[in-house]
Design a protein around this nucleic acid. Structure first.
Lengths: 187, 187
DNA sequence: ATCACTTATTGACTTTGGTCAAGAACTATT
DNA sequence: AATAGTTCTTGACCAAAGTCAATAAGTGAT
């Protein structure tokens, strides 16, 4: 548990009493490859911190699969919209590799927000952080071509993308697998 | 000032002492049409609440103008990314009509976060709220055609879009004015 | 090593939106 | 009302990505 505390320290350093309460609400889970930690139609009543492994966040309507996000080691994983609004998720979250996560439940997090100002602040910092990720991703669609998005993605994440099939990367970039194949060839 | 308090009450009800401190940090400003409240290259050291009027959030590189967002009455307006990261803004924010806003300075907001737990919470709620807006906008690019984006936009905002020229709406939707003109014709 | 299965590439063709240019419609000012 | 300046529409053509189908390459299991 101390290893995960170091990760949270990057957001905010909790004192021992705050951390003790926080720790009580965290549940460690080992996730098998291809296991789904959230299904379409469920409410995302948790947010989880990834200690090891990676996840895909995808939408599946009548066999048409679209990958909206990848989550890697060190990221928070959830359907944050569903988490915030209480509405049911339109996406699945599925482990792409064996994974270790620390889950915290929505209700418990809310009472931690009430109890500790610093955890309330942690909640703000997480929200701001997630805002920045999604704003960056939106920008990549507003201002970049698929080829530029691909270039940026591999520059930032080449190692993590190593064992992700190309058709999933294509979906994440918003193009068809054939198109990504052609993008890769032409440079 | 009491009218604006009602708006903030929708996020969180501040008690009189919290509100008194909050109010001290708020600066009312009257903005002329076409006035820029943030310029490219500046750091967005404020966040503002719109009491009246509307703004466009746009990027201008060598005459190529792209509208990334509109902000209306009741919205918070800023370059939130620049606000959070401290980096300079790559966008302008410009009033499309005469406007009345309440600005709060970044440093002052930070000390309010330190002083009042409820304002810290307000900060979280604002961040969560802005997350949801940008996530919805990203979804509109991931899952919708330009025609669907247009339909959704006018359904949600028809009144507010009344006096915005079509070429700006096209830019917001990520298409050229000619294309929007054709979309409108074909239905 | 072989076979089955999944993933990636390639080619031919279609669809959608972009580009460029001309003209029509609208607005504001005198 | 006339003019100038925007904004919007339309047409002809172009470019980029999608679709469909065939084949190649890669992966795992026996």
């Amino acid at each position: 548990m101390e290893t995960i505390r170091l990760y949270f320290d990057k957001f905010i350093k909790l004192n021992d009493s705050e951390w003790a309460d926080f720790e009580k609400c965290i549940v460690k889970a080992n996730i098998a490859k291809n296991e789904q930690i959230l299904k379409q139609g469920e409410h995302a009543n948790f947010i989880a911190f990834i200690q090891e492994g990676s996840f895909r966040f995808f939408y599946d309507k009548e066999g048409e699969v679209k990958i909206t996000a990848f989550f890697f080691k060190g990221d928070f994983v959830s359907n944050y919209r569903s988490f915030l609004t209480g509405k049911s998720s339109d996406h699945f979250i599925e482990a792409m590799q064996e994974a270790v996560i620390y889950k915290i439940n929505l209700q418990e997090l809310k009472s931690l927000y009430d109890k500790h100002k610093n955890i309330e602040r942690l909640g703000r910092l997480i929200a701001e952080n997630l805002y920045l990720s999604v704003a960056n991703r939106l920008d990549s669609f507003l201002f970049q071509t698929p080829a530029e998005r691909y270039k940026g993605l591999i520059e930032r994440n080449s190692r993590l993308l190593q064992d992700i099939p190309q058709y999933m990367i294509a979906s994440y970039l918003g193009v068809k697998p054939e198109t990504l194949s052609r993008i890769r060839k032409r440079k």
